[in-house]
Design a protein around this nucleic acid. Structure first.
Lengths: 207, 207
DNA sequence: GTCTATAAGTAGATAGAC
DNA sequence: GTCTATCTACTTATAGAC
């Protein structure tokens, strides 16, 4: 019953890379096998079908996102700090895997039913806590009134875009792009955090 | 030589819908044929191959984007107004076709070479004009100093996200979603315009 | 567990009748 | 121009040897 961890692990890592980059429809079992240094038959030995393998990767990815969201919501800090913290770690994650957001968004759009329960269980729950805290701080006058979904949409959009549009940014930056790219993406942290602070910090009319 | 416009047009519209929703890899010629109310053979009669048909749709889509960008850059208005105008029309476009941004971004990532020349010719050129004007207004002290690519990334990201993450937003909003969705997406216009204005309008320390 | 060989199914492309 | 039928190539999946 004890499977060889090393091979299974190599398959999973290869599958993650290929699925992330090509998506479910564009990925090929042959490519995953090559990437893992084995042959197609073994893929089916370990994970019966392409669909099952994909599902596995999906759960792993969504699970990881959910876990980091959850652990972040457990810290007892003001909403502004919470968002700034989120920006920091999320940009770092995307630096390691720029295909993540486009992959997740594409697959959700392709097959919303498959995600409905995952989203409800893992994402919406954390959202609820976030909304409660946000409305709480608004009521206390600590921050400006904002619509939680608009705030989240803005922050996520601002973070995700440069990674999703990476080849576009590359082209826009021109020749000496490579050395600048990492720098630009790192600057995003400050840009987005500045947005959060400006959007939420009250203007202090009575100062 | 005069082809039957009606059929060719129906094919193109069907292809656009299917490609937009499923992407190049996920789209099926059979589905496009069904959607157009004809059979597969006719698709090949009109557009030799799937790749050619896809290329056609791609050019059409990118061309339309480039045209609206260009016409917008021809207006002689301040940068803030230009961006606000852009937000207005772009959100309206996405209301009609929410798959547009995810489609374009995915395909660019899938096949950057295919887009390199298009991007340089159509997008980067308009970007250059935009950057010149931006830096000009910054120098004149009319607006705050900002990095053009960061500004564009923020605005595009803020606009695109709710459309790209539509099923997520849907789930987050819960049951009575349908009536609220259109409203929420329309509010985006004001939210993003407010960001543009806040980010660029000088604080007037000497007032 | 891992491989080679092959089956089974799917999708793009073509032939040829009308 | 449009259709049905068919071919070819590719991709997933399985059989069976080692």
């Amino acid at each position: 019953m004890v499977k060889d961890i090393s091979t299974e692990q190599r398959i999973l890592e290869a599958a993650r890379r290929v699925f992330m980059k090509k998506g479910m429809a564009g990925a090929r079992m042959q490519e995953i096998a090559d990437e893992a240094g084995i042959n197609k038959a073994l893929l089916h030995y370990y994970f019966r079908s392409k669909d099952k393998l994909f599902e596995h990767i999906l759960m792993e990815v969504v699970g990881r996102i959910a876990t980091s969201l959850k652990s972040m919501m457990e810290l007892d800090i003001p909403i502004i700090q919470r968002l700034c913290f989120f920006v920091e770690i999320y940009v770092d994650v995307l630096m390691e895997n720029r295909y993540l957001p486009l992959f997740v968004l594409t697959e959700i759009n392709q097959n919303p039913e498959r995600f409905a329960s995952m989203i409800r269980e893992h994402i919406v729950v954390n959202m609820q806590d976030f909304i409660v805290q946000l409305e709480d701080e608004i009521e206390q006058g600590k921050i400006n009134p904002v619509h939680p979904l608009h705030l989240v949409s803005s922050v996520l959009g601002m973070i995700i875009f440069p990674f999703a549009a990476f080849p576009l940014i590359e082209e826009a930056m021109g020749d000496n792009f490579a050395p600048l790219a990492r720098n630009f993406l790192n600057q995003r942290k400050e840009v987005v955090k500045e947005f959060v602070i400006n959007a939420l910090t009250p203007k202090n009319h009575d100062k």
